[in-house]
Amino acid sequence: MDVNNMQDKAYREINHRILRSTYAPGDKISESLLEQDLNLGRTPVREALIRLRRDGLINIVPQSGTYVSKINLSEATNARFVRESVERKVMVEAAAVASESDISYLNDILDKQLAASKNSDHEMFFELDEKFHQYFYKMTNKMIVWNWLQVTNDQLLRFRWLRLKVVQLNWDNLIKEHQKICQAVGKHDPEEAERLSINHLHLMIDEESDVLEIFPNYFI
Rank of each mutant, 00 (worst) to 15 (best):
D2C: 04
D8M: 13
N15Q: 10
L19G: 03
T22M: 08
T22Q: 13
T22K: 14
T22I: 12
K28G: 06
K28V: 05
I29M: 01
I29P: 08
Q36C: 11
R46F: 13
E47V: 11
E47I: 12
A48H: 08
R53E: 15
R54T: 14
N59A: 14
S64K: 15
K70Y: 06
E75A: 11
A76H: 06
N78Q: 14
R80I: 07
R80S: 13
R83L: 13
R83N: 08
E87G: 02
V92R: 11
S104K: 08
Y105E: 01
N107C: 00
E123K: 12
D129V: 00
D129K: 01
F132S: 02
Y137R: 01
M139V: 01
M143P: 04
I144W: 09
R158F: 03
L164T: 09
V167P: 00
Q168C: 08
N173T: 10
L174A: 10
I175T: 09
K176D: 12
V185Q: 06
G186I: 05
G186Q: 05
D189G: 06
P190F: 04
H200D: 03
H200A: 09
L201Y: 11
L201E: 07
M204N: 07
I205E: 11
D206E: 14
S209I: 14
F215L: 04
N217W: 02
I220S: 12
I220L: 11
